[in-house]
Design a protein around this nucleic acid. Structure first.
Length: 244
DNA sequence: ATGCCTGGACCATTCCTCAA
DNA sequence: TTGAGGAATGGTCCAGGCAT
């Protein structure tokens, strides 16, 4: 049995434990946590795993809000991990924001079941073997929010309060790829989504993800996905029934 | 014919790693 | 932290394919 609840703690909770697994996912503000021997702060974009019988306590600031999920069992990817805290994907983070609104609305059993199913589906997609360095969170947000803008490493490093060399190192240690590779990956994924889900032309999509030059975009897209933007569009449009 | 797109060649810039 | 050097990336130009 999986239940989801939205909770906003504002005061020190007493030490306690549960029979079920519990996941705590901040959607605003941060929490000070103590889980077993682990102690630290958890911020938006991270998830805490609390195993059955494990003593824990939270302390949240006034404005902090977070989603709590009680589960009988963890998905395999989480169960296999020894981590207490890991970074969640942007997709799951966005879904949590939707859930926040959903959980405060009217109670509808069907919708609730679908919501939980989707939550579990996204949970299974998490790679919980890493935790993104805090200094990079603003940088990642900035890049993702401004994919159409040019980003140079020097200014991104300043945002993280690191020297360019340190920034390179922290970035690769934390995410396993270089800054440029990360930016290109985000741009390509966004581009693919726009090509498949919108009627924007390849030119418009290229501009939307920061390429002034269509040729450069097409080349990069083909390298990344192994097929051209137009081929990608056609492949998916042939799978989608016509609406008119 | 026209517009849209792809991909090759070339070049400049920026990135990234590594040694000092 | 800095600097060097190779690698990667993006822009420009252009030729050519494809659909309308």
């Amino acid at each position: 049995m999986t239940t989801l609840s939205l909770r906003a703690y504002t005061s020190q909770a007493t030490v306690h434990d549960h029979e079920q697994h519990q996941l705590v996912l901040p959607i605003r503000g941060h929490l000070d946590i103590q889980v077993g021997s682990h102690q630290g702060t958890v911020v938006t974009g991270e998830c805490v795993i609390i195993r059955p019988g494990e003593s824990h306590l939270f302390h949240a600031k006034d404005a902090a809000r977070f989603i709590v999920a009680d589960l009988d069992s963890l998905p395999d990817n989480l169960a296999a991990s020894q981590r207490v805290v890991f970074s969640i994907s942007t997709l799951l983070m966005n879904y949590l924001l939707f859930l926040e609104a959903q959980l405060q609305g009217e109670v509808d059993r069907n919708i609730d079941q679908l919501s939980i199913a989707l939550f579990l589906g996204l949970l299974e997609k998490q790679t919980c073997d890493h935790r993104v360095d805090r200094r990079l969170l603003r940088v990642l947000d900035t890049m993702k929010a401004q994919l159409d803008q040019p980003h140079d490493v020097a200014s991104l490093a300043r945002l993280a309060h690191l020297s360019p060399t340190q920034f390179h190192k922290v970035f690769r240690d934390s995410l396993g790829i270089s800054v440029k590779q990360y930016l290109t990956a985000r741009r390509m994924e966004r581009a693919r989504a726009q090509l498949i889900h919108t009627d924007l032309s390849v030119q418009q999509v290229a501009e939307a993800v920061g390429y002034q030059n269509l040729s450069a975009f097409s080349r990069r897209f083909s390298c990344y996905f192994g097929q051209s933007p137009r081929e990608m569009t056609r492949q998916y449009s042939s799978l989608t029934p016509a609406t008119d």
